[in-house]
């Protein structure tokens, strides 16, 4: 198997960059995110970046089409986005984040309708995953059966070992990527397959979807929500939260429709014209968010809406994170 020496990393990244826009994990003063390589330099720390990759496939704000208002009403003047998105390579995705992209794929590419803008971006993207030899304290991907040393959905997998990385193409797209990087890859030295990293958090999702399916009216929800601030931190940082709103930007006689990330934590999310709201308080909203991730998505698509990335553990200001909720769900009896 191809071997990438630590010191050959810049050359490897350059080989990737020659094939499209290259996004790499970088560390900013305020947190980590993905940025275009060479504008910022690669910085790898345990666990995923604070900001997930989802914005590369589902931008936080995205134009859908332009319209012009004429005497008899609006006409469509231009449809966005372009059919072919620019080629991009996302480097350094952790196995949890690769799994999260697979969840987004289910929603946007499966389930009846195909979302063309999402599909264009996904098809133009290659995922280069980085296996985890070390877990962050907030990591709990194991709870969902993920292997921190594997990333089945990635085009290329890098496994960090002493002195370098084992490099494996996992798809045709991955092979194509590596073909351009042959010059910087060596042959695999004899190395032992590493042991999986140790995790601090003891969490499991085993049996949770079935248990939650009978817990809609459980008293657990009566207290759980109370400390929730009703902000969008968990949803906006979550790599699998995909909900969006569609709105108009009105510029006099012309404008455009756009979609933008939305949060099920906001009251307006389900508020209907006329004032009725089927999820009127934080209780219903919090319950729906966790049931959606841990029960509804497994029911509908056979995948959890959580990959154990730990971002909500890191940033929920009141510690109402999904690991804490999983633990509570495991503890309580199902009696109502």
């Amino acid at each position: 198997m191809p071997w990438l020496k630590d010191e050959a990393m810049p050359a490897f990244l350059a080989a990737l960059q020659s094939q499209g826009r290259l996004w790499v994990p970088v560390e900013e003063e305020w947190g980590s995110c993905l940025a275009v390589w060479e504008e910022k330099s690669l910085r790898l720390t345990p666990g995923p970046t604070l900001l997930a990759a989802k914005g590369l496939f589902l931008p936080q704000t995205e134009k859908l089409f332009h319209y012009r208002v004429e005497a008899e009403g609006a006409v469509i003047s231009e449809s966005e986005p372009p059919a072919a998105a620019a080629r991009q390579i996302v480097f350094g995705l952790r196995p949890c984040d690769v799994a999260a992209v697979a969840v987004m794929d289910k929603v946007f590419l499966d389930g009846g309708y195909v979302d063309c803008a999402y599909r264009a971006r996904r098809e133009a993207s290659a995922l280069v995953a980085l296996a985890c030899r070390e877990a962050a304290p907030t990591c709990f991907c194991r709870a969902f059966g993920l292997d921190p040393l594997a990333a089945p959905g990635a085009d290329v997998l890098l496994l960090p070992l002493e002195g370098g990385y084992l490099v494996r193409a996992q798809t045709a797209k991955g092979e194509e990527l590596l073909a351009q990087a042959q010059g910087v890859l060596a042959q695999e030295p004899a190395l032992d397959w590493p042991a999986p990293p140790a995790f601090l958090l003891e969490v499991t999702a085993a049996g949770v979807p079935a248990k939650l399916a009978a817990m809609f009216d459980h008293p657990l929800w009566d207290n759980l929500y109370q400390k929730c601030l009703g902000c969008g931190i968990c949803t906006y940082l979550c790599p699998t939260c995909y909900c969006f709103d569609v709105q108009s930007a009105d510029r006099g006689t012309e404008g455009y429709r756009y979609r933008c990330w939305d949060s099920c934590m906001f009251p307006e999310y389900t508020l209907m014209a006329g004032g009725h709201n089927p999820r009127p308080t934080k209780k219903e909203r919090v319950r729906n968010r966790f049931l959606h991730k841990l029960c509804y998505l497994p029911e509908r698509f056979g995948v959890f809406g959580c990959v154990g990335c730990g971002r909500c553990l890191l940033k929920c200001p009141v510690n109402l994170d999904i690991a804490a909720v999983l633990k509570k769900v495991q503890e309580v009896g199902t009696h109502v």
Binding site: W30, L229, C231, G232, F266, P317
Partner: peptide, 12 residues
Amino acid sequence: RRCLRCFACRNV
């Protein structure tokens, strides 16, 4: 530029 508009600052 990097504000996510999560409204946590307002809600807290």
